[in-house]
């Protein structure tokens, strides 16, 4: 098969991907045009776009995005780094694993949103409680994935390190961490994803800034265009985070044989 033919097929595939979004837009627009719903429930797609542009122009949107991102970043860094170190230590020491492992597993069973009221009572309603809440969300995927990665480094590689007299630091940086890396990266991805969900949750729960706050406030004023614009923005940011992590993953894990058929 010639290369140009293959390319044309891919082109067609990409077009197929636009069918559903297009249909949704058409249905949306016609529902508005036919006045099936009140304006409080559905506004035209273009209005949402205009609202988005307006919000961006006044700087409201940027400010809210920045304050959400700040929270996510601090919560994620706090939770993920704690999770990473604890997971690493648990993976290296079976005693520590038996000591704290069951407790952490039990804690994971608590739906973390249930902790929100408790955290507010303990830390107040301001920034600190949000960061703590997000860090709890970021902590669990990181601790489990790091632990799994570290304890899953094959025994044959550990043995090899012993044969070559590897001592702690070199052993950690050359054998254990690279071996655990795929799992750690999965942890980072889930951890960041949950952080993003938790920040929205925390902001919906009570806040004076952030994308989530923007949506709650708009809901109370029945401004559905802003709610939809907010939804669009959090989707785009979640999507971008995922893409960035995928790019990093590809670069860092070059050594891995990929089974996604792209090698062939």
């Amino acid at each position: 098969m010639s290369k140009s033919l293959l390319k044309r097929f891919e082109w067609k595939d990409k077009l197929l991907a636009f069918i559903v979004p297009l249909l949704v837009l058409v249905a949306w627009q016609s529902a508005v045009s036919l006045q099936l719903f009140s304006e409080m429930i559905l506004v035209p797609p273009l209005t949402v776009m205009n609202t988005l542009v307006d919000l961006a122009r006044t700087g409201d949107l940027t400010n809210n995005i920045i304050s959400s991102l700040k929270r996510v970043l601090s919560g994620f860094l706090l939770g993920a780094s704690t999770g990473f170190f604890l997971g690493l230590l648990m993976g290296l020491s079976s005693l520590l694993d038996r000591f704290v492992g069951p407790l952490i597993k039990a804690c994971k069973q608590v739906p973390q949103f249930a902790l929100m009221p408790l955290i507010i009572l303990w830390f107040g309603i301001d920034e600190v409680s949000k960061v703590v809440f997000i860090s709890i969300g970021a902590f669990f995927p990181m601790v489990f994935n790091t632990y799994q990665g570290v304890s899953g480094v094959p025994k044959k590689y550990r043995e090899l390190a012993r044969v070559f007299n590897y001592k702690s630091f070199r052993y950690l940086t050359k054998v254990i961490l690279p071996g655990a890396l795929p799992s750690i990266i999965t942890g980072v991805r889930h951890s960041l994803g949950l952080s993003w969900m938790f920040v929205v949750g925390a902001e919906l729960f009570g806040s004076e800034s952030g994308v989530g706050y923007m949506m709650v406030w708009a809901r109370q004023l029945f401004q559905i265009d802003i709610v939809m614009a907010g939804l669009f923005v959090i989707g785009i940011i979640g999507f971008t985070m995922n893409i960035i992590l995928q790019i990093i993953e590809k670069r860092v894990l070059r050594w891995r044989v990929s089974f996604d058929g792209r090698m062939a």
Binding site: P21, M40, I41, G193, W196, M197, V200, G201, L204, G212, M215, V216, A218, R219, F222, I224, V227, M228, G230, L231, I234, G235, I236, G238, F239, N242
Partner: peptide
């Protein structure tokens, strides 16, 4: 694409509907 929207984010919209 839809999966990227954190679940919680749907709540305000769904409540309005």
């Amino acid at each position: 694409a839809l999966r990227q929207v954190p679940m919680i984010g749907w709540i305000p919209l769904i409540v309005m509907w």
